[in-house]
Design a protein around this nucleic acid. Structure first.
Length: 951
RNA sequence: GCCCCCGUAGCCCAACCGGCAGAGGCAGUCGACUUAAAAUCGAUCAAGUGCGGGUUCGAGUCCCGUCGGGGGCACCA
């Protein structure tokens, strides 16, 4: 497109750019330009690494078969620019990219075609590597790997075993080896749960006890079973509508035996340590919300022989508890349901049934049939009375116990004390069922709502047993109540979390096998390290058995189950060869991405997942740079906000376990996180709603046409089915990689989403062409740059240059690539205007310009640098330094405002003090005329900025 | 329903602690080159910051309300 006939032979066209780019990519590869030395091990260089270290990382891509579109590399170009800038400052920069290659698409493709997922995965990786190479990314290629490499997942399995062989010591607040727990049981330091001496337990019983402590454990508990996918899912993979995030199939809660990770043990540290991270507040808020820590109290309400335990965040409102509610699935519902209604029962409470048992049974049936969606759409409060009354421990009041589906079994204890005066849900229910409402917090003046949830003095809250809250604020009243409950044995202060343990097994083929076998008695055994990796066997069928998506009564059947030769093994695990069965579930897709930064650090280490010295160098805490509280971690982690909870929470959890066990020195994996925006695109549909090719749509006065027919614009993702995909390969052909990189970075702030516009790319190309023309004669290809002694830059030139250097440096540091690019264009325009038609361009201007461009457009910068006579790559600098004296002007122009409107201007020496500036301003002709001899009411002088005269 | 982010020229975007609304790009217009066009080069036009209030000498920036767009959470006791 830019190859018009008749263009000068040495113009910077896409063809010339392509030739230069391939040449420099070869050069970088051949010279190992981006290899970052480690302190020790295979990747160590001679002598210790020099300069500060910088560890930059992109979120792990999944190598999709569709290849990349122009939206995908946005983050990679940003991190590359940042990494290159830091290299030019003399720093030791670790930047590479691996592949998160286990996962459903390759498996599904395998199911359809019979191709082994490894074949598809490797082909996709090869294609993606080709595209990434063409972008000119400065990656240390020695450090790249895929999670599917057995040498990698060997260590994923190894970490699993470390987690499996650990428990959480709540007193020390950290994970410890399970062997230490066993030792404590054995020597009596710690009593076994039921008090039986350790030695009196059989080995099976001992192992059962230990299993209840392990950080990775098997349990039969309610899990998310998705028949449509044939697998179970983690809570994080289930949408609010109760469907699978992938495929949108119904998900059912079923009791199944599955592997879990005890992430809840780390809930407090995962919340608290967010404060130590340099992350977007939005992501921190999402994690806090997901963990959902709330402080409150557990309170016991006696009912006949039983006790209902509730969790409340408002123990201060106990005197306002006028009824109780159990979730329909609550285990006490059966025992508390009475034979007959009390004589005076309110007809609204019975659900029209003649006995409580009938009413409850009908209500439970109804509730179980309601989908999550129904619940969401219909928030009217419903419920039925159990016939039983509980006793409020603070005032002895007899309060009715209901069953209602607005209380969920999955949170707290599945039972609540209802305080309509201070909780809107309870208020709604109380109104519906004619229950009493007692305010225990005095609402603010003028409050005319229903439930009052704000702060205020307690009222109606005192008893004869020494508890009086009246007049206390909410916080004080909570503390007082908890102390009273604890003293009288009615409850205690406690903390609740929304976070649940992490369901860690999947019924899939293309995932990491568990390093676990079961003996004939069904007892799990961890495989010893020297049996790792446990490699995936070849199978005939890659798919788990899937079922009718609506059939909740089906059971998972993993594909590995059918590989009987692999499943049934004879091993010697210490007591001679015995038969075992392998675990047939595989790990979830998140496992491999939980720790990959550690492997980037030491990718070829056969003796450890990574050498502690290398980990400390690249990831260890740096209190001297980042403050005493620095948890360590990589210096910049860039990726989309969609991983805010899942990946980032899991990875933090694993990292903390490894820290507790002493394998890493950093307490967090990612010190600084940055969410890049997305590149969006317009798509167009015709009258039938069918997508038409976006690049053939024309616009006239705000109306869009395709083949003469009107079409309608949509804005959103780029995708094959939307017919609006633009690929990097097209951009390389039309413009070259440097132009493409520059355009992507200049479109807007790195964290903003923006629409792709191919027609705008030419602006970036023109800029590079103008710069090229300053250095190279387009007709002859000869250098047109002065030797330093012939044409010296002028004072004005140097002011423009150093202003740009200062601005560009600051922009690169803060990831403001768009404004850095604009400043380079500005400087280039200045130099073009001044020297574009002169005999030659001063070297003193061109060289810094080329160097400053290098992080964004490395190929053209290397090429020009070489043509300027430099023998070595500019990868490691120099980066231009600012000379402060060119940043300050001798004189300053002040606008003079009168009542906030600019009326005139004066120019004064830069070192003039405020009085002098004021005098000059008031003496200025127009201003003096406006004042007309009168005194201004006030004069504001903002040094270096402006003067405002108030009259 | 609750919480968070964003609304600046026809379009994408700048504007640091409140201090002259414009750095850069696209498009448009005019000119140069050309037989002509494309490409290229040069010049130029362009909004008073979604809307309504408030604070201030001064508001794109701070506060309140409102509209529009995007995102998160959603009976969590």
């Amino acid at each position: 497109m830019s190859e018009a006939s008749g263009a000068p032979a040495h113009r910077y066209t896409a063809t010339v750019a392509g030739e230069i780019e391939r040449r420099w990519q070869d050069y970088w590869e051949k010279n190992g330009t981006f290899r970052a030395p480690n302190p020790v091990g295979d990747l160590a260089a001679d002598g210790a690494p020099t300069g500060d270290k910088v560890f930059v990382q992109d979120m792990f891509p999944y190598p999709s078969g569709a290849g990349l579109h122009v939206g995908h590399p946005l983050g990679y170009i940003g991190t590359d620019t940042f990494a290159r800038f830091n290299r030019m400052l003399g720093r030791n920069v670790l930047h590479t990219l691996g592949f998160d290659a286990f996962g459903l698409p390759a498996e599904q493709y395998a199911v359809q075609t019979g191709t082994h997922p490894r074949v598809t995965t490797e082909a996709n990786i090869a294609n993606m590597k080709r595209q990434l190479r063409a972008l000119g990314l400065g990656h240390d290629e020695r450090r790249s790997f895929a999670t599917t490499d057995p040498e990698y997942y060997r260590w994923t399995q190894w970490i699993f075993l470390r987690i499996y062989n650990s428990y959480y010591d709540a007193e020390q607040g950290k994970a410890r080896p399970i062997a230490e727990l066993a030792a404590e049981f054995a020597d009596g330091t710690r009593e076994t749960p039921d008090g039986t001496p350790w030695a009196d337990l059989t080995r099976a019983e001992q192992s059962e006890v230990l299993d209840t402590y392990r950080l990775a454990y098997v349990t039969e508990s309610p899990v998310n079973w998705c028949p449509g996918l044939g697998t179970v899912l983690s809570n994080e993979e289930v949408t609010a509508e109760g469907r699978s995030e992938r495929g949108n199939f119904p998900v059912f809660r079923r009791n199944l035996k599955q592997w879990m990770m005890r992430i809840t043990a780390y809930a407090d540290r995962l919340v608290d340590d967010l404060d130590r991270l340099d992350w977007p507040e939005k992501v921190k808020a999402m994690q806090r919300n997901w963990i959902g820590r709330s402080h409150g109290a557990e309170v016991h309400f006696p009912v006949e022989q039983d006790v209902i335990e509730v969790f409340t965040t408002r123990p201060d409102t106990l005197f306002g508890a006028t009824y109780m509610v159990l979730a329909p699935e609550h285990p006490l519902v059966d025992t508390l349901t009475t034979e007959a209604w009390p004589a005076d029962v309110d007809s609204r409470w019975t659900g029209g049934a003649s006995t409580p048992q009938e009413a409850i049974a009908a209500y439970r049936r109804q509730a179980s049939m309601k989908s999550e969606l129904d619940r969401e759409e219909n928030r009217d409060k419903t419920g039925v009375f159990t016939g039983s009354y509980a006793t409020n421990p603070v005032n002895g009041a007899r309060i009715p116990v209901f069953v209602a589906d607005y209380v969920l079994m999955g949170y707290g204890t599945g039972a609540i004390m209802a305080v309509p005066g201070q909780d809107q849900r309870d208020w709604d229910f109380a109104e519906e069922y004619g229950l009493p409402i007692v305010r225990t917090v005095q609402p603010e003046k003028g409050f005319d709502g229903q439930a009052y949830t704000g702060d205020g003095p307690a009222i109606n809250s005192a008893n004869d047993s020494g508890l009086s809250l009246n007049g206390l604020g909410v916080d004080e009243a909570k503390k007082t109540t908890i102390a009273w409950l604890e003293e009288h044995g009615h409850g205690k202060g406690t903390v609740q979390y929304k976070l649940r343990d992490w369901l860690f097994s999947r019924q899939r083929y293309w995932g990491e096998p568990f390093p676990i076998v079961y003996d004939v008695e069904g007892i799990a055994h961890a495989l010893p390290e020297d049996m790792l990796p446990v490699e995936l066997p070849d199978v005939d069928e890659y798919a788990p058995t899937t079922y009718d998506p609506e059939d909740a009564e089906t059971k998972p059947s993993p594909p590995l189950e059918k590989a009987t030769d692999w499943v049934e093994v004879e091993l010697d695990l210490g007591d001679g060869p015995r038969p075992y069965r392998r675990e047939v579930n595989t790990m979830p897709n998140w496992a491999g991405s939980c720790w990959y930064q550690l492997r980037y650090v030491d990718p070829t280490n056969d003796d450890a997942m990574c050498d502690p010295e290398n980990e400390r160098y690249w990831m260890g805490p740096q209190p001297e740079t980042h403050g005493a509280d620095d948890p360590g971690g990589i210096d910049l982690y860039v990726g989309g906000v969609e991983h805010a909870v899942l990946h980032l929470l899991y990875a933090r959890f694993w990292h903390k376990v490894l820290y507790d066990l002493g394998y890493v020195s950093s307490q967090e994996p990612y010190r600084k996180l940055f969410n890049q925006g997305y590149i969006q695109a317009y798509a167009y549909t015709d009258a039938r709603g069918v997508y038409v090719p976006a690049d053939e749509v024309t616009e006239e006065n705000g109306t869009f046409f395709y083949n003469g027919e009107e079409v309608f614009q949509e804005y959103g993702k780029m995708g094959k089915s939307l017919k609006n995909v633009v690929t990097p390969d097209e951009m390389f052909d039309q413009f070259g990689a440097d132009t493409f990189r520059f355009y992507e970075m200049s479109m807007g702030p790195f964290d903003d989403s923006r629409p792709w516009a191919t027609k705008d790319v030419v602006g970036a190309q023109r800029f590079l062409q103008r710069l090229w023309r300053l250095v190279v004669n387009e007709d002859t290809g000869e250098l047109r740059v002065s030797e330093s002694d012939t044409v010296e830059p002028t004072e004005d030139d140097l002011r423009a240059l150093h202003k740009a250097i200062a601005g560009v440096r600051a922009d690169y540091v803060d990831l403001r690539f768009n404004t850095a690019g604009a400043k380079l264009i500005e400087l280039n325009n200045y130099v073009t205007k001044t020297y574009g038609s002169a005999e030659s361009t001063p070297r003193g201007l061109v060289e810094p310009l080329v160097l400053m461009l290098a992080p964004l457009c490395p190929h053209i910068a290397e090429e020009l640098w070489r043509r300027l006579g430099h023998e070595t790559s500019l990868t490691n600098g120099p980066f231009p330094e600012v000379a402060e004296r060119y940043l300050v002007d001798d004189t300053v122009e002040y606008p003079i405002q009168v009542n906030g409107k600019v009326r005139s201007r004066i120019t004064v020496p830069a070192d003039a003090d405020n009085d002098a500036v004021q005098a000059a301003a008031l003496g200025e002709e127009k201003i003096a005329a406006l004042l007309d001899g009168g005194e201004p009411r006030k004069v504001i002088v903002v040094p270096g900025r402006l003067v405002n005269v108030v009259v």
